[in-house]
Design a protein around this nucleic acid. Structure first.
Lengths: 199, 199
DNA sequence: CAGCCGATGTCACTTGGTGCCATCACGTTA
DNA sequence: TAACGTGATGGCACCAAGTGACATCGGCTG
């Protein structure tokens, strides 16, 4: 059948084909896009990747996680950038700096992000998982803010507000053509929140 | 064994004991508290409620939903109160009015909310479900704001910011003794966000 | 050459969740 | 009063997610 775009790995590359996790992710992404998340079984994903169900669960804790590969790295990127913001920056400005670090990274993955976003939007279970990833990132950012001397509850409120801004900006970003628009959209959403909460 | 607090329903009450959903919820809550969510099977919940697994899934779509019974009613309450806020209220003020309606309702259920909160906090799957309920409520509130003439993205940002405020305030509320403190905690958290986002 | 290591396969098993049909007390109607 | 429909429940088979235990086998190391 030769799935995953007919990529052929020469048999001389060792006992196993490399990048098992990546192959599983690509297989899952294509199947979720073709048939939908619910109608795809883990056995089918594994088969398309040339592996077995058991191996899938060695790389991913569950069927949803495959769409969130790299989330920890993204979280670390944003958190580090938040921590590294100038000492003069306010909490919200520090968070914005962190989010912009993510914005730069996403610029190279506009198409991928769009496909992934469509799959997630089509399924409530995946939406749940996305929300907890955002929540986890907010908690991590809040930790960075505490490291900057911001007390609770300001730290968690600033971090969570930042994630709200990011989420809205991200949704608008995937819905328009310019891959480099994310930083601008983040700034616009943040300004909107500022206007809304102005007393 | 006589579970669920040894409540005895006289056999003269009809063919089936009443309040099946409530009995299932109480059974689930106690088992989740005793053994943890993961270590509890649906068959055990149903048995404690005097029913079967099949009947459990007639009342709840899955094992998590049993902890979120009434969420739709709460959502309607908050949404209606948001829509009914004075026309002079800003978007955030309208959302705050909606959240306070929930605050009043929760005052009578402090103990229940605390136990439920502890169970949810102990399990990531339940945390996921809670987040999507908050997200769903935010979407509903945003709809009410649009009905008040608030355009997007302001509507969704205001609603989501409100849910952030509510979530933080709620966590603080279950962690302190006064059942009537929720409205005050909401107001404090909102003021904190105002201070954070002030340009 | 022997033996360890690590990624994978195999298999059995539990549990969440669903579809389908049977059951049976209750109310209604002829 | 007898037949009938109805609605909540039970029973059962079944699928798929996820896990634990053990086997496999090519490559690397001493």
């Amino acid at each position: 059948m030769m799935a995953r775009g007919d990529i052929i790995y020469p048999p001389s590359m060792g006992r196993w084909q490399p990048d098992a996790a990546l192959r599983l992710q690509q297989a899952a992404l294509s199947l979720y896009a073709e048939r939908g998340f619910d109608a795809t079984t883990v056995a089918e994903i594994a088969e398309r990747a040339g592996l077995t169900k058991r191996t899938f669960f060695r790389y991913f804790t569950d069927k949803r996680e495959v769409l969130f590969m790299g989330a920890d790295e993204l979280r670390a990127l944003v958190t580090d950038a938040t921590a590294a913001a100038p000492a003069s920056a306010t909490p919200i400005e520090a968070v914005a700096a962190g989010l912009n670090a993510a914005g730069v990274m996403f610029a190279q993955r506009h198409d991928f992000a769009r496909q992934r976003h469509a799959i997630i939007a089509a399924n409530p279970e995946l939406h749940e998982r996305e929300l907890i990833k955002l929540s986890s990132m907010a908690e991590s950012i809040a930790g960075a803010l505490r490291g900057r001397g911001v007390p609770d509850p300001a730290a968690i409120l600033a971090a969570q507000t930042g994630m709200t801004v990011f989420h809205v900006a991200f949704a608008r970003w995937v819905d328009q053509p310019d891959p480099n628009a994310l930083p601008r959209l983040i700034e616009e959403s943040l300004d909107e929140v500022r206007a809304l909460t102005a007393a």
